[in-house]
């Protein structure tokens, strides 16, 4: 990764020096070695503080929305960032010529909490190999399975390489097919149990709206979630159901499965399970092969004359 990091800095420096971009968005050091934070390099010297390692977690696409108002933006993009950018481009919120995308292939981001728990002490660095992750602590260097170290969103990721990079650092990894089997597990519950499951999840919601703020599909200028006639401020269970239903439905057919909502949620609500339910039905009912990859027209913005009536067959698990 350090070789790619050096090239990233070099490209960012050149873009800023030559004035191609006003700001370059990447990652910089956080308070802890395993928690880098988004970093906005606005002058050539700042480019040398950019870093890229296995702990760079936050999605960067959504930051573009604000930054691009002041001028062209460069950024480093993994697969998930790339899909987010595609969403913003498809929604005409950003023009392609205002972006300079430095693509990198990502094999998964290490969740510092998970990794520290697995290693039993502070993890300073990590290497993501094929099926294992090597965690480096002050005393040891040991390998663990991916599921014990990576963010949930990365475990399900099938888009390691962005599709819209202006320049790609390192090798491209071909995309795979998203597995939606985790949705089946919820579908198989009896309906009362399913209701209790979601009630337990939604009860914890703080209504901080972090899921909306980080979402590249939630890019509307004015949001119904801010309007009391659509959603009250209360955090009673009924309003929580209304909130989560509305949020998930508003990104149905537009969600790019970047997993940012789930990563940003301070209450650990499995929001991906909601988004993926819509994805599974879009795939199964309307034949949208990869609903998370933005296309010409969103699946709910069009129809076929012979679409099935999906409500006849939805009664599983009762």
């Amino acid at each position: 990764m350090s070789d790619i990091q050096a090239r990233l800095r070099e490209i960012a420096r050149r873009l800023l020096t030559e004035g191609h971009v006003r700001v370059f968005i990447g990652f910089g050091p956080g308070f802890e070695a395993n928690r880098p934070v988004p970093f906005f390099a606005a002058d050539p010297d700042a480019a040398d503080r950019l870093l890229l390692d296995e702990f760079c977690a936050a999605g960067l696409a959504r930051y573009v929305l604000e930054e691009v108002r002041e001028g062209p933006v460069g950024l480093v993009a993994r697969g998930c960032d790339g899909l987010g950018l595609e969403r913003l481009l498809a929604d005409h919120r950003v023009a392609r010529e205002q972006l300079y995308v430095v693509g990198v292939s990502c094999r998964g981001v290490v969740d510092p909490d998970r990794a520290c728990a697995a290693a039993g002490e502070e993890v300073r660095a990590a290497r993501v190999n094929g099926e294992t992750v090597t965690l480096i602590t002050p005393t040891a260097e040991r390998s663990f399975p991916r599921s014990a170290c990576l963010l949930d969103k990365c475990l399900r990721c099938q888009d390691p390489t962005p599709r819209i990079a202006d320049v790609l650092l390192g090798e491209a990894i071909p995309p795979g097919e998203r597995d939606l089997a985790h949705v089946d597990a919820v579908e198989r519950m009896p309906s009362d149990e399913r209701y209790r499951f979601w009630a337990r999840q939604f009860e914890r919601c703080l209504r901080c709206l972090a899921c909306r703020q980080v979402c590249p599909a939630c890019n509307c200028v004015s949001c119904s979630l801010d309007r009391p006639e659509w959603l009250e401020r209360g955090t009673g269970l009924a309003e929580q159901f209304m909130f989560h239903f509305t949020r998930a439905y508003h990104v149905a057919g537009r969600c790019v499965a970047c997993g940012e909502c789930e990563r940003a949620c301070p209450a650990g609500i499995p929001l991906g399970l909601l988004n993926d339910k819509f994805m599974k039905d879009l795939r199964d009912l309307f034949g949208v092969a990869a609903p998370h990859r933005p296309g010409d027209v969103e699946p709910l913005g069009k129809f076929c004359p012979d679409d099935p009536e999906g409500w006849h067959e939805g009664g599983e698990g009762t």
């Binding site: 309307f286 709910l300 679409d307 409500w311």
Partner: peptide, 30 residues
């Protein structure tokens, strides 16, 4: 012309989603 064709797509998803949240299938009919 096409309002109900959008409804068909939309409520195919919505009905299944409400059931996914725990609602009994019989409670919503299209």
């Amino acid at each position: 012309t096409s309002g109900n064709l959008f409804t068909r797509r939309r409520f195919s998803l919505v009905k299944r989603f409400l059931e996914y949240l725990g609602l009994e299938p019989e409670r919503l009919r299209v």
